[in-house]
Every structure is written in structure tokens, then in C-alpha cells.
């Protein structure tokens, strides 16, 4: 097992290198980014303070060096946890991301929990009631859920809750709890706000999972060992849950690994619409003002999550399914 993991990590190395190169190219791509403007500003000021900051930037990012040396400076700092500087916020990229990462992770984990809790039972129900009213209804809803873009769903849900029900949505906390210390009341308040983004972000994933669960279970239910189990006189519940489900659920494990990073990436738009304190709005803002070290670091993190998710999914699958050979 350990050697399997080690091999997979080694295989990832060249891909990691290429990802970092692409990220760095993207950082340097926009003409007139924030750093350029900043430097022009500092040069125009021209006093000793400005000269000092200018010198600092030059040294830190290797601005006078050829591009590949700049890349080397950037990546060697990156691996030690120094992701660069946000020039808009005048702060370190690492602390900015770190402040918001907690809520992003919280949101993603809740969304995954929601998706699995809804999708698995719904998928089982649809498979055991194939082509009946419940199945058709669920399939239709799932199709809609897959087709609706997240941000439209967010807008529609916001319209419903604001105009029809008169609730306040948006943000993760009510104003009175925003700066309050953590307390049970604040936690309840968080839950009250959390469900909207969870439903919005989770819908597509839930629908996809449900269809997968339904398809897998249907496939397995047709297999001979299930017929054998039925022929032995096992009650139907045992056939489905003990025999069929155990096999049918395996492919979903590999989905789970890719779902977490997909949600982190997918929450970008939803968080902008709902005004959530997550990575998404920070990323958009950074792109809008071309604060490229911040944007590049976030993009890089997202693809790292994606790779990590794939790796974890492979490991989880290998652990859960003894038929998978590790070599």
C-alpha cells in the first residue's frame, strides 16, 4: 500500500511542475497588472521610502532578472509557504488565503455531507423502484439539477427567499454575530445561513451522485450473485443492502475524492452571488484588479486540491475494493 502511494506521488511530480509553470505564466500574463501599476506609482513618488519598497520588491520577486529566474524565485518560495504578496491588500497572500480557507473547507464539507445524505438514499430508492413514478420524478429533478448552472440557482433561490418569503440571505452570519466570539447562538446562526449555499452548490453534485448510484445499483442487481442470494430465500432488504449495495457503492468513492476540489472550485460564483467570506470572492476580486500573485496562488491551490483529491480517491478505492490490484 505504502509503495503504491509513493509511486502515485512520484508520478504526480512532473505534472506538478507543469502546473506550476502554467500558473506562473498566468500570473505574468495580464498586461498592466497591479504590481506594474504599483511600481509606476512608487517610481513617480520617487522619495527614499518609495525607493526602499521598490528595492524590496525587486529583490523579492527578482523583477530585473529573466523570466525563468523569476519563476525559480517564485516556486522556491512557494514550496516553503511564501506565496507572494497581495498588492491590493498590502498583505501576504498566505494569510489572506488562510483567513478564508476555513469557511471554504467548512462549506465544502457540509455540501459533500448534504450531497451524500440525499443522493445515496434517493439513488437506492430510484434503482429499487425503476421506471415507477418515484424514479421518474427523481430522475427528472436530477436532470434539472444537472442542467441548472449554480449561479442561476443561487439567483433564483435568493429571489424566492427575499421576495416571496422575506428572509435575509447572503453572508454566513447575521450582522449582530459577524464580529462576535464563537458561541452556541452564533453556531445556530451560521447553520441558518449555511443551508442556502449548501443547497445551491450541492445540487449538481447530488444529482450526479444520485444518477451514478442508481445506475450502479441497477447493474449490480442484474448480476447472478444477486439472483443467487434471492434464490436462497434472503429477504429483499438484505439482498439490496448487504449484497448489492456493498459492490455498487465502490465507484462512488472515486467520485468523492474529486468532489471536494470540484466544490471548492465551483463555489466561486455562488459565493460571489451570496456574498460569502470564502476563497471565491477573494479570487474574483484579485482577478478584477489583476492582483496576480494572489490569483495565481489560489488557482495553484485549487489544482493542488484537485490532484490531492484524485490521489485520495484512488487510495480510498484501493482500500475499499480488494479486487483492485495495487501494482
Amino acid at each position: 500500500m505504502l509503495s503504491f502511494i509513493f509511486r502515485r506521488v512520484v508520478q504526480m511530480a512532473p505534472l506538478l511542475f507543469l502546473i506550476s509553470v502554467v500558473s506562473f505564466v498566468l500570473i505574468n500574463l495580464p498586461p498592466g497588472d497591479y504590481l506594474t501599476i504599483k511600481i509606476a506609482e512608487l517610481e513617480a513618488r520617487g522619495d527614499s521610502g518609495a525607493q526602499f519598497i521598490l528595492g524590496q520588491y525587486r529583490e523579492r520577486f527578482g523583477l530585473d532578472l529573466p523570466i525563468w529566474q523569476q519563476y525559480w524565485i517564485w516556486i522556491s518560495h512557494f514550496v516553503t509557504g511564501d506565496f507572494g504578496r497581495s498588492f491590493e491588500y498590502e498583505r501576504e497572500v498566505g494569510t489572506l488565503i488562510w483567513e478564508r480557507m476555513g469557511f471554504s473547507v467548512l462549506l465544502s464539507l457540509s455540501t459533500m455531507l448534504f450531497a451524500w445524505l440525499v443522493a445515496i438514499p434517493a439513488g437506492i430508492f430510484a434503482a429499487t423502484h425503476q421506471y415507477r413514478l418515484g424514479d421518474n420524478l427523481l430522475s427528472f429533478v436530477a436532470f434539472l439539477g444537472l442542467a441548472l448552472p449554480n449561479f442561476l440557482l443561487a439567483l433564483l433561490l435568493m429571489y424566492l427567499s427575499v421576495v416571496v418569503f422575506g428572509w435575509s440571505v447572503g453572508g454566513l452570519f447575521s450582522p449582530e454575530y459577524l464580529d462576535a466570539a464563537w458561541s452556541p447562538a452564533k453556531f445556530v446562526d451560521l447553520l441558518k445561513h449555511l443551508w442556502v449555499p449548501v443547497v445551491v452548490i450541492g445540487t449538481a453534485g447530488t444529482a450526479g451522485l444520485m444518477r451514478l448510484m442508481r445506475g450502479n445499483l441497477l447493474d449490480v442487481l442484474r448480476q447472478q450473485y444477486v439472483t443467487t442470494a434471492r434464490a436462497k430465500g434472503l429477504p429483499e432488504g438484505k439482498v439490496v443492502y448487504k449484497h448489492a449495495l456493498r459492490v455498487a457503492i465502490n465507484p462512488l468513492i472515486s467520485v468523492a475524492g474529486t468532489m471536494f476540489p470540484a466544490i471548492i472550485a465551483g463555489e466561486v460564483i455562488t459565493s460571489v452571488v451570496l456574498n460569502l467570506p470564502t476563497i471565491g470572492p477573494l479570487f474574483l476580486r484579485a482577478l478584477q484588479v489583476q492582483d496576480m500573485y494572489l490569483a495565481g496562488a489560489i488557482l495553484m491551490f485549487m489544482s493542488l486540491f484537485l490532484m490531492l483529491g484524485n490521489l485520495l480517491a484512488d487510495i480510498g478505492l484501493a482500500l475499499a475494493d480488494p479486487r483492485i490490484k495495487l501494482s
Partner: peptide
Amino acid sequence: MRATEVLMAFPTLPLWMTLAAAVPP
């Protein structure tokens, strides 16, 4: 195949956003 792998290693929407932001104003 390596090229497609690198492309797919990035989450689609954020990559789209980053590239679109690089379009000169």
C-alpha cells in the same frame, strides 16, 4: 496526453476566469 492532463489538472471555471481576466481592457 500530457498536455490534456495539465489542462485537466486545473479546475475549469477558475482557469476560464483567470484567462478571461488576462484579456486586455
